[in-house]
Amino acid sequence: MERCSILALLSAAVLIMSSLGVEGWSSYNTEVFQVGGKVMCQDCSKDWNQWAHGAAPIPGSKVAVTCMDARARVVYHTSDLADAEGEFDLSVTKNVDGIEIEPENCAVRLVSSGSATCNLMTDFGGGKSGVSLHRPTQVYPGVIKYTVGPFYFTTPQCDLPDNGPQ
């Protein structure tokens, strides 16, 4: 009997969650949505374990969000600096001059490093090429937040030379 109750609850939860598609998030009547993440330094001169798991935050790194309209024109751009833990948190206004901003038409990317020694952009986590927003990581009444990254910089000595076609 108890097992049937658990299955019924799980089924109800799946039905509710599946009905909350992108259309469901718009019902939260927020005027902004949040974009957050982290900027880290990976140093290839360390041993493999330190390189893979020992990335350090880069305070002062700049990250930007650019949003396009349906005709692929930039309608919104904002940026933020990472805090002491390398974390950033951007607020994006959903309505700009009567144009509704769709999170799916926004991309987040690295702009600059806050470090003099770890300042070479990488595309680990999509930071160099940019990451599109797809599904929010937090949805509460009054709060819609997307989390991206982490994004990484590395040291110039870790840069691989471009050998061109072989």
Rank of each mutant, 00 (worst) to 15 (best):
C4I: 10
S5T: 10
I6C: 12
A12M: 14
A12C: 13
G21S: 15
W25R: 10
T30Q: 07
V32A: 05
Q34L: 15
G37T: 02
V39R: 09
M40S: 06
M40I: 08
M40V: 11
C41Y: 00
Q42C: 04
Q42Y: 05
C44V: 01
C44E: 00
D47A: 04
N49Y: 12
G54I: 10
G54N: 10
G54Q: 10
A55C: 10
I58A: 07
P59R: 08
G60E: 04
V63E: 01
T66V: 15
D69R: 09
A70Y: 09
A70E: 15
R73N: 14
R73E: 09
V74F: 06
V75T: 08
D80A: 14
D80H: 13
D80M: 10
L81S: 07
A82W: 03
D83A: 00
A84M: 03
A84N: 10
E85S: 02
E85R: 01
F88Y: 15
K94F: 03
K94N: 06
G98W: 14
I101G: 03
E102D: 12
E102A: 09
A107H: 02
A107D: 03
V108N: 08
R109F: 06
R109V: 01
L110W: 01
V111F: 03
S113E: 06
S115D: 13
L120E: 09
L120D: 02
F124L: 13
K128C: 00
S129L: 08
G130C: 08
G130R: 02
V131Q: 01
V131T: 09
R135Q: 09
V139M: 13
K145W: 04
P150H: 01
F151G: 01
C158N: 00
L160I: 10
P161W: 04
D162G: 02
N163E: 11
N163H: 12
P165R: 07
